[in-house]
Amino acid sequence: MGNASSTLTQYDIEEVQEHCNNLFSQQEIVSLYQRFCQLDRNAKGFISADEFLSVPEFAMNPLSQRLLKMVDGLNFKEFVAFLSAFSAKASMPQKIELIFKVYDTDRNGKVTFNDILDVLRDLSGTFMSDKQREVLRGYI
Protein backbone atom coordinates (compact mmCIF):
# COMPACT_ATOMS: atom_id res chain seq x y z
CA MET A 1 0.00 0.00 0.00
CA GLY A 2 1.23 3.50 -0.76
CA ASN A 3 3.03 2.60 -3.96
CA ALA A 4 1.17 3.71 -7.09
CA SER A 5 1.85 0.41 -8.83
CA SER A 6 0.40 -1.66 -5.99
CA THR A 7 -3.25 -2.36 -5.42
CA LEU A 8 -5.26 -2.38 -2.24
CA THR A 9 -6.12 -5.71 -0.73
CA GLN A 10 -9.30 -6.30 1.24
CA TYR A 11 -7.14 -6.26 4.37
CA ASP A 12 -5.66 -2.86 3.39
CA ILE A 13 -9.13 -1.42 2.82
CA GLU A 14 -10.42 -2.68 6.16
CA GLU A 15 -7.30 -1.42 7.96
CA VAL A 16 -7.75 2.07 6.47
CA GLN A 17 -11.46 2.03 7.29
CA GLU A 18 -10.68 1.18 10.90
CA HIS A 19 -7.98 3.86 11.05
CA CYS A 20 -10.49 6.53 9.96
CA ASN A 21 -13.29 5.28 12.24
CA ASN A 22 -15.26 3.77 9.33
CA LEU A 23 -16.17 7.18 7.95
CA PHE A 24 -15.58 5.96 4.40
CA SER A 25 -17.10 2.99 2.60
CA GLN A 26 -14.88 0.42 0.91
CA GLN A 27 -15.65 1.97 -2.48
CA GLU A 28 -14.76 5.42 -1.16
CA ILE A 29 -11.44 4.05 0.13
CA VAL A 30 -10.70 2.61 -3.32
CA SER A 31 -11.57 5.95 -4.96
CA LEU A 32 -9.38 7.82 -2.47
CA TYR A 33 -6.53 5.42 -3.19
CA GLN A 34 -6.84 6.08 -6.92
CA ARG A 35 -6.73 9.83 -6.25
CA PHE A 36 -3.79 9.37 -3.90
CA CYS A 37 -1.89 7.49 -6.61
CA GLN A 38 -2.63 10.27 -9.12
CA LEU A 39 -1.24 12.85 -6.72
CA ASP A 40 1.80 10.71 -5.80
CA ARG A 41 3.34 11.30 -9.21
CA ASN A 42 6.66 9.62 -8.46
CA ALA A 43 5.11 6.65 -6.62
CA LYS A 44 7.04 7.45 -3.44
CA GLY A 45 4.25 6.28 -1.15
CA PHE A 46 3.53 9.77 0.19
CA ILE A 47 2.31 13.08 -1.15
CA SER A 48 4.59 16.11 -1.04
CA ALA A 49 3.51 19.72 -0.57
CA ASP A 50 4.10 20.40 -4.27
CA GLU A 51 1.86 17.49 -5.21
CA PHE A 52 -0.90 18.79 -2.94
CA LEU A 53 -0.57 22.21 -4.56
CA SER A 54 -1.29 20.59 -7.94
CA VAL A 55 -4.95 20.39 -6.82
CA PRO A 56 -6.37 23.76 -7.90
CA GLU A 57 -8.98 23.90 -5.13
CA PHE A 58 -6.27 23.30 -2.55
CA ALA A 59 -3.82 25.78 -4.07
CA MET A 60 -6.49 28.51 -4.22
CA ASN A 61 -7.49 28.10 -0.57
CA PRO A 62 -6.19 31.09 1.44
CA LEU A 63 -5.28 28.68 4.23
CA SER A 64 -3.40 26.30 1.95
CA GLN A 65 0.00 27.11 3.48
CA ARG A 66 -1.33 26.19 6.92
CA LEU A 67 -2.90 23.01 5.60
CA LEU A 68 0.35 22.10 3.82
CA LYS A 69 2.10 21.91 7.18
CA MET A 70 -0.46 19.31 8.17
CA VAL A 71 -0.45 17.24 4.98
CA ASP A 72 3.09 17.34 3.61
CA GLY A 73 4.50 13.81 3.51
CA LEU A 74 1.29 11.92 4.30
CA ASN A 75 1.12 8.27 3.31
CA PHE A 76 -2.19 6.85 2.12
CA LYS A 77 -3.48 5.86 5.54
CA GLU A 78 -2.64 9.32 6.95
CA PHE A 79 -4.13 10.97 3.85
CA VAL A 80 -7.48 9.24 4.44
CA ALA A 81 -7.36 10.07 8.16
CA PHE A 82 -6.79 13.74 7.30
CA LEU A 83 -9.67 13.76 4.82
CA SER A 84 -11.98 12.04 7.29
CA ALA A 85 -12.47 15.35 9.15
CA PHE A 86 -14.11 16.67 5.96
CA SER A 87 -16.55 13.76 5.76
CA ALA A 88 -20.23 14.46 6.37
CA LYS A 89 -20.08 11.51 8.77
CA ALA A 90 -17.27 13.02 10.88
CA SER A 91 -18.17 13.94 14.42
CA MET A 92 -18.18 17.52 15.63
CA PRO A 93 -15.11 16.89 17.85
CA GLN A 94 -13.19 15.57 14.80
CA LYS A 95 -14.06 18.69 12.81
CA ILE A 96 -13.21 20.98 15.73
CA GLU A 97 -9.84 19.27 16.19
CA LEU A 98 -8.93 19.98 12.57
CA ILE A 99 -10.05 23.60 12.83
CA PHE A 100 -8.08 23.98 16.06
CA LYS A 101 -4.94 22.68 14.36
CA VAL A 102 -5.42 25.19 11.52
CA TYR A 103 -5.74 28.07 13.99
CA ASP A 104 -2.97 26.96 16.36
CA THR A 105 -0.34 28.41 14.04
CA ASP A 106 2.59 28.03 16.44
CA ARG A 107 1.47 24.52 17.47
CA ASN A 108 1.68 25.23 21.19
CA GLY A 109 -1.71 23.69 21.98
CA LYS A 110 -3.39 27.08 22.41
CA VAL A 111 -5.10 29.49 20.05
CA THR A 112 -3.76 32.91 20.99
CA PHE A 113 -4.59 36.35 19.67
CA ASN A 114 -1.43 36.20 17.53
CA ASP A 115 -2.58 32.88 16.06
CA ILE A 116 -5.88 34.48 15.12
CA LEU A 117 -4.06 37.45 13.58
CA ASP A 118 -1.93 35.06 11.51
CA VAL A 119 -5.00 33.30 10.17
CA LEU A 120 -6.78 36.60 9.55
CA ARG A 121 -3.70 37.79 7.64
CA ASP A 122 -3.90 34.70 5.45
CA LEU A 123 -7.62 35.14 4.88
CA SER A 124 -7.65 38.88 4.24
CA GLY A 125 -4.35 39.28 2.40
CA THR A 126 -3.79 42.86 1.25
CA PHE A 127 -7.43 43.83 1.79
CA MET A 128 -6.74 44.54 5.46
CA SER A 129 -3.68 46.22 6.96
CA ASP A 130 -1.90 45.02 10.07
CA LYS A 131 -3.15 48.14 11.81
CA GLN A 132 -6.76 47.25 10.94
CA ARG A 133 -6.23 43.71 12.17
CA GLU A 134 -4.74 44.99 15.43
CA VAL A 135 -7.93 46.97 16.09
CA LEU A 136 -9.66 43.61 16.54
CA ARG A 137 -7.67 43.00 19.72
CA GLY A 138 -10.35 44.88 21.69
CA TYR A 139 -13.06 42.58 20.34
CA ILE A 140 -11.41 39.25 21.05
Rank of each mutant, 00 (worst) to 15 (best):
Y11A: 13
F76H: 04
G109I: 09
T105K: 02
K131P: 09
E14S: 14
L120A: 14
K77A: 05
I96D: 10
Q94F: 03
D115R: 02
N75K: 03
I99A: 15
L68M: 00
D130A: 01
C20T: 12
L123T: 12
I47L: 12
F127T: 03
L39A: 10
S124E: 06
G125T: 07
I99S: 14
L98H: 06
I29C: 10
F100A: 07
S87D: 06
F52M: 13
D12F: 09
Y11L: 13
P62N: 05
S25P: 09
F36E: 08
L120F: 11
F100R: 07
A90S: 00
E57K: 13
N21T: 05
K77Y: 00
P56A: 07
G45K: 07
N75I: 07
V71A: 14
V16N: 04
F79Q: 11
V16R: 00
F100L: 06
V30Y: 06
D118N: 06
A43S: 15
T112R: 05
E18Y: 05
N114T: 09
V102C: 05
P62T: 01
L123M: 14
Y33S: 01
F36Q: 08
D115A: 00
D106P: 12
A90G: 01
G73V: 06
L39N: 08
I29D: 10
E97I: 02
A59H: 10
A88G: 11
E28D: 12
L67I: 14
F86H: 03
L32A: 02
I96H: 08
G138A: 14
I13M: 02
N114L: 11
D50G: 13
D115E: 00
A59L: 05
Q34S: 13
C20G: 09
L68K: 03
G73I: 02
R66L: 15
G45E: 11
G109N: 08
Q132H: 14
R41W: 11
K101L: 13
R133D: 08
R137N: 02
G109F: 09
D118K: 02
S91E: 08
L39H: 06
S84R: 01
M92I: 13
L53E: 13
Y103Q: 01
N108D: 15
F46A: 01
K131W: 12
K131T: 14
I99V: 15
L83G: 01
L67V: 14
Q26G: 07
D40N: 03
D50P: 05
G138H: 15
Q26H: 00
G109Q: 06
K95C: 07
F86D: 06
L74Q: 12
P56N: 05
V111A: 10
E78M: 11
N22V: 00
M92H: 08
D106S: 10
A49F: 08
D130W: 01
T105P: 06
L120G: 09
R121L: 03
E15M: 00
D118P: 00
Q38K: 15
L23R: 07
P56F: 03
E28S: 08
E28G: 02
V30S: 08
S54K: 10
S64Y: 07
D122A: 05
K77L: 06
L136D: 07
A85C: 15
N61C: 05
N61S: 04
L32C: 00
V119I: 11
F100T: 09
P93W: 01
M70R: 09
S48A: 04
Y33C: 04
F76G: 02
V71R: 14
D118R: 03
V119H: 02
D106I: 11
E51Y: 05
D50T: 04
R121T: 15
